[in-house]
Simulated assay, not measured.
Amino acid sequence: MTKSGQILPKPQRVVMFVPPGAQLIGIIGFIEAFDAVNRLRVHQGRPPVYEVLVCGLDEQTASVTGLGLATRPAARVRRVDTLVVGGALSSSQVDREPELRRQVARLADRADRVVAICGGAFVLGELGWLEGRRCTCHWMDLDNLRARFPTAEVQTDALFTEDEGVFTSAGASAGIDLALHLIRRDCGPRMALMVARSLVVFAMRPGGQSQFGSAVRVRSGTGQRLHDLIAGIHERPAGDHSVSCLARRAGMSPRNFARVFRDQTGQTPGAYVARARVEAAQRALAHSDAPLPAIAEACGFGHEKTLRRTFLKVAGVTPAAWRRRFGLGA
């Protein structure tokens, strides 16, 4: 293991274990993030940081789509620094295959850190790696994960978790967020930011962030007019988004608008706007050095005191604590 931001002294071997029926989005995205570090380093005239090895039970492993991956048989893998267990749609059944469990257990015992993407958490659970540890997986499987492994501390609304060298992620694309987190620990926040930009993804969504941003929480049946209003809230968090102003834009009375908004989103207009502004502040805290009063003004809070109070209520921590954990200087 390395201190955050300290470049590894030699290439770290990252072993990606691909189970039968794997979901490629999580596996390929994770591999691409680590490979991007190497490509950026080589472009800078520096040596690669990672050696990425893809393995499975056999020399060919079929994904859930039917596409096959060339994989090194896990039985032939000896050295491993970081073990990553990919997820599969049938992870709750796959993890009980004796040979799969045997090979993953052997590799995990040799690794400095163990990572599960999405349903890969079930494999770690079967091997006892989740006992007493915080963990997560795709939201559709959270109840199953909790029922199967009652001693695990299942986090129901997190993108990824970290607990004593064991890392787990939510849905497959959240594996990229976890990969960026590991890159940040190994190579520092600026490299993680460069990788995110090269992959055109969000730079470092924190692990404690909900699997669902406020925009994702909007119900599918929401009308177009309300969708346009919601888009405006996210595009201009500092704008006037009082109930009276939103109602006027929607062509409704304030009372009727508040009722319709809650019926279609499950939240009051005020609560939705507050969460959207906190999410905007989180992005600013993570990716800029702007002072808190400036962020408060830019994100629609007006004053730093209001930012602190609302941020603590929504995120559970203060803006300063968030920045220390996820900011550029973390």
Rank of each mutant, 00 (worst) to 15 (best):
S4K: 11
L8P: 05
L8D: 04
R13W: 04
V14M: 01
V14T: 03
M16F: 07
M16T: 06
M16K: 10
F17N: 05
P20T: 10
G21Q: 10
G21H: 12
A22H: 11
I27Y: 13
F30R: 02
I31K: 09
E32F: 06
N38D: 10
R41I: 04
H43F: 13
Q44P: 03
G45M: 11
R46S: 07
R46E: 15
P47E: 01
P47T: 07
Y50W: 04
E51P: 01
L53I: 11
V54L: 14
G56K: 07
G56P: 02
L57M: 03
A62S: 11
A62C: 10
A62Y: 09
S63D: 05
V64I: 15
L69R: 10
P73M: 00
P73Q: 00
R76F: 14
R76V: 14
D81F: 03
T82I: 12
V84M: 03
V84R: 03
V85D: 11
V85L: 05
G87S: 07
S90G: 14
S92G: 04
D95N: 13
R96T: 15
P98S: 00
Q103S: 05
A105N: 10
R106F: 01
L107Y: 07
L107N: 08
R110D: 12
R110M: 07
A111F: 00
D112T: 15
V115S: 03
I117L: 14
I117N: 01
C118S: 06
G120V: 09
F122M: 00
W129M: 07
E131R: 05
G132Y: 08
R133V: 00
F149Y: 02
F149W: 01
V154K: 03
D157C: 05
T161I: 04
G165P: 09
V166C: 08
T168H: 02
T168D: 01
G171F: 04
A174T: 02
A174D: 00
L178Q: 02
L178P: 07
H181C: 03
L182T: 00
L182H: 08
R185F: 03
P189R: 03
M191A: 06
L193Q: 08
M194P: 03
R197K: 13
F202H: 06
A203V: 03
M204F: 05
P206W: 02
S214Y: 09
S214V: 15
V218A: 12
R219G: 09
G223M: 08
R225N: 15
L226R: 15
D228F: 12
I230S: 15
P237W: 06
A238K: 10
G239F: 04
S253M: 13
P254D: 08
R255A: 14
A258G: 12
R259M: 14
F261L: 07
P269E: 09
V273H: 07
V278R: 12
R283T: 04
R283G: 14
A286C: 06
D289F: 14
A290T: 10
L292H: 15
L292S: 03
A294P: 05
A298W: 01
C299E: 08
C299R: 06
G302N: 11
H303P: 07
T306I: 10
R309N: 02
V314M: 06
V317G: 04
A320K: 05
A320S: 09
A320P: 00
F326V: 03
G327L: 01
G327S: 04
L328F: 04
